[in-house]
Design a protein around this nucleic acid. Structure first.
Ligand SMILES: [Mn+2]
Ligand SMILES: [Mn+2]
Ligand SMILES: [Mn+2]
Ligand SMILES: [Mn+2]
Lengths: 217, 217
DNA sequence: CTCATAATTTAGATAAGTCTAAATTTTTTA
DNA sequence: TAAAAAATTTAGACTTATCTAAATTATGAG
């Protein structure tokens, strides 16, 4: 259907569209670790296939059919990540690169059966919602810890940064998906935050960590 | 490591080497549904990488490192087939094309954990042996039904032909892996064979089917 | 042994995806 | 608002994997 490269571009454009409206050539290039000129070439191809809206120098957005493809790849990515963690006992910081390959396995029936096999999970190991077989999912309403105030509490439900080092740090601090936390203190000097983690212990995190750890209230 | 095309060539050469010694350009072309000239190009590349022994016009064989790669791909192919049948409930005639994609997922740790998850299966859904993580497996000593005599009996343990239509035919006749059969009669006119299937029923199969259904004695 | 045929390789072309360097357009800044 | 800077596109090249058509080598029938 679509090539591996095309799929990766569509997924990247989809993710970048979440933050901003139109996505720029340079943003895509950075996200795919490729050069702007390569991106321009691909944008022309995707526009020819009517998967993106593209006018020179103006950035791009996905068309409905482009978005459908992107969401399907994300569905596959997240289901495979869930499989790797829940069935094969990988850690949440180990699965991204493998899922990056597996998301391109083409069979729709395979992925629907995998979904059923795992009993239709709603979220991947990083708290991201998993689209259903029709591409529907509810975008989660999460706030970074840095947006909370003292005495606010909630449940750790997602991360903004997916790098291994960040996930490993969180794991070591027991700041993992599902844990209940409450804000004990916010240090005004550096905006670092002191948290109470489920009556287990107190953790002091930097502003950067607080920016990247997402809470459901 | 190696490209998808290179992996498919190595696997094809490995399989073709089972029947004959040196594998010819045309055999590879037929097996990969490509042209002889494309094969020649790839053979040069694989020879440069020291994965095959190649002298012009003389056909090829795998080097030890080429064989190791081929066996690893076959391991992945068969483990994924087993997964699709045993965990996702696909039929044995549905899994080949999916496994053809999945065999190229690169992570060795993933495949070793998958192996463990399924409790180290010895054979894929078609009865083919699954190499262990060191590439070792015991080649099965099977005979086609056409090589047996009246009153011989044994267990259905493999198939030579993996096409959907053949596998579906076998399934319909209940001639599946694990079933015990005995030769009741061999019709000398057309070499067709009458079988007793596990005291369940009698089946009459053509010479062609008898040639492609493998028995462990 | 010789020549016709079959098998294989070479030559030259194409498509996908990438790159560097140069040109163009947009945006920012002064 | 004009020049500088940044972003983007174009031009031309490269790699991988294909193909067709032509040339070469091997094989086997007589
Ligand atoms: Mn990918
Ligand atoms: Mn994830
Ligand atoms: Mn394959
Ligand atoms: Mn098989």
């Amino acid at each position: 259907m679509n090539t591996l490269a095309e799929e990766n571009y569509l997924k990247s454009i989809y993710h970048l569209s979440m933050d901003a409206g139109n996505v720029s050539t340079n943003q895509i290039a950075a996200s795919l670790k490729t050069k702007a000129s390569s991106v321009t070439d691909m944008l022309k191809k995707l526009a020819d296939k009517a998967l993106i809206n593209y006018t020179r120098y103006q950035g791009v957005s996905l068309t409905p059919s482009g978005e459908k493809i992107a969401i399907n790849i994300i569905r596959k990515h997240r289901l495979w990540e869930y499989f790797l963690v829940e069935k094969l006992n990988f850690k949440w910081d180990q699965v991204h690169d493998m899922a990056e390959e597996m998301e391109h396995i083409s069979s729709a029936e395979l992925i629907d059966r995998l979904d059923k096999f795992m009993d239709y999970p709603q979220h991947d190991p990083h708290g991201e919602p998993i689209p259903d077989c029709n591409g529907r999912f509810k975008a989660h309403e999460l706030k970074p810890i840095s947006a909370l105030s003292v005495n606010d509490s909630g449940i750790i439900s997602g991360v903004r940064d997916h790098t291994s080092s960040f996930l490993q740090y969180l794991e070591k601090q027991q700041l993992v998906i599902g844990k209940k936390i409450a804000i004990t203190e916010i240090i005004s000097f550096d905006h670092s935050v002191v948290l109470q983690v489920e009556n287990i212990k107190e953790v002091h995190i930097s502003r950067e960590v607080a920016n990247n750890l997402l809470i459901a209230l």
